[in-house]
């Protein structure tokens, strides 16, 4: 699920950026530092949408760096148990398959794949129904449900299922 929230961060800015572009430099550095990171509490920071407030800079003794407390608005993505996501399959093996929904990785184990789909090994390992009409392989797009999340301080990992109504392949790359 996506959230629009306000976060705060202390930014250290090198003295060479001081000048009339200080603010631009600060924001650019903030985006570079923060976007794409993951915190267990808030999830993945997808994008910074605006700066709320930049506090007074404090010169660090000895280095000349200045630290600014910056409040910024951003979009975060945080997966939850029970959430339905669309993801791209990245790897298929005997134990199940891995998929990615943006920054988050999801594992679907083989007992959470519908019973009528069977693993086919080979050059392009895949799960296929007996009549061959549905196939899950690398780069397939699937809709899945998250049934468990592991949230570490800097990492989020999910397990999902496609064994439910309206879940499964939504776009087969082979047929396109």
């Amino acid at each position: 699920m996506f959230f629009h929230i306000v976060l705060e961060r202390n930014m250290q800015l090198h003295p060479r950026h001081f000048g009339r572009n200080l603010r631009e430099n600060l924001v650019a550095k903030l985006m570079k530092d923060v976007e794409g990171t993951c915190s267990g509490q808030h999830g993945f920071v997808v994008a910074i949408t605006g700066i709320e407030n930049i506090g007074k800079g404090l010169i660090r003794d000895g280095t000349g760096f200045v630290s600014f407390p910056v409040k910024y608005q951003c979009v975060v993505f945080r997966p939850f148990k029970g959430e339905i996501l669309e993801a791209v399959v990245t790897m298929v093996n005997k134990m199940g398959f891995f998929a990615e929904a943006g920054p988050v990785q999801i594992f679907v184990s083989n007992h959470l794949i519908p019973d009528d789909m069977e693993f086919q090994s080979g050059d392009m390992p895949n799960y296929t129904t007996s009549d061959g009409s549905v196939k899950i392989q690398k780069d397939s797009e699937v809709r899945l449900k998250i049934i468990g999340t592991r949230v570490d301080a800097t990492e989020i990992f999910c397990i999902g299922t496609i064994k439910d109504d309206f879940l499964g392949v939504i776009n087969d790359p082979a047929s396109v």
Binding site: M91, N93, K94, M95, G96, F98, Q105, F107, S109, S121, P125, G148, T149, R150, F157, I159
Partner: peptide, 16 residues
Amino acid sequence: NALDALQLISLEDEYF
């Protein structure tokens, strides 16, 4: 358990 899956995949084969 399945939540550890990411660490368990190996590069050589398809097993954990």
